[in-house]
């Protein structure tokens, strides 16, 4: 796990927005090798433009380091890295849930501001950066679409029942789950994967999924259960 770097006084440069987008997520090992080379090239040359390009595929260690720099010294460079990686995903998530382009973009920006303001509450031993940002984007969606503040537990509640076994604080939850899950999703029967995407991406309750697919509610629930069971068994060894 990278140590928090010494904070430097840093004047934020205006970034070049004309970045090259690398499409696709399921990288072949050859293309991911190319990315790794590109990344080391960026580190050598310090090129901002390439840095932004690469940020579409930042690895989990890089994300954690950015979060630590953001929490530790409000490092704008780190924020820019996180923004380049997550804002386009939050926008995609909002559009899948029914936002138009302009609204999705606004929500993505607002969610990223929450990332900035809540950076101190990120705990690398509790969740991966992607999972943490997902919960922020999800809560933003609940807030924006349903106009409610999601009821959540208060981590400082005196009633909070402590975990049976103390969490290991020195362990960083890895984003490797992203790749493992992408592979696991490929193994799911399409009928199950579709339900999972509808539930997570499209803001659809089970009853809405049933309505839309014309399947009985029980079938929707059982397919979702099967899908989650399969994913969990594939991820079983990863202590989350």
């Amino acid at each position: 796990m990278p140590m928090i770097r010494h904070c430097k006084a840093y004047v934020f440069p205006i970034m070049d927005q004309s970045t090259v987008v690398i499409e696709g997520i399921g990288l072949s090992s050859r293309s991911s090798n190319r990315l790794r080379q590109a990344r080391s090239h960026v580190i050598r040359t310090g090129s901002k433009k390439k840095f932004m390009t690469d940020a579409h595929h930042a690895d989990s260690q890089q994300l954690v380091e950015w979060m630590q720099r953001l929490a530790g010294c409000q490092d704008r460079d780190a924020f820019a890295g996180l923004f380049a990686y997550f804002a386009p995903r939050i926008k995609a998530y909002m559009m899948r849930s029914g936002s138009d382009n302009a609204a999705a973009e606004e929500f993505a920006q607002e969610a990223m501001l929450m990332v900035w303001h809540k950076a101190n509450s990120f705990d690398a031993s509790q969740a991966s950066v992607a999972t943490w940002v997902f919960t922020i984007a999800r809560n933003k969606r609940i807030d924006a679409f349903r106009r409610i503040n999601r009821p959540e537990l208060d981590p400082d509640d005196p009633l909070l029942q402590p975990a049976a076994e103390p969490m290991q604080d020195d362990k960083v939850v890895e984003d490797q789950t992203a790749r493992t899950i992408a592979a696991a999703m490929d193994q799911l029967p399409e009928e199950q994967a579709v339900m999972l995407r509808m539930a997570f991406y499209e803001d659809k309750a089970h009853s809405e999924i049933a309505e839309e697919t014309g399947l009985p509610l029980g079938t929707v629930k059982s397919r979702l259960r099967l899908a989650m069971g399969k994913l969990r068994s594939l991820l079983g060894d990863i202590e989350l």
């Binding site: 991966s128 997902f134 997570f200």
Partner: peptide
């Protein structure tokens, strides 16, 4: 974590 991983695999 599964939600986060699904989220990370969304085409940006």
């Amino acid at each position: 974590a599964i939600g986060g991983a699904l989220f990370a695999t969304m085409p940006p």
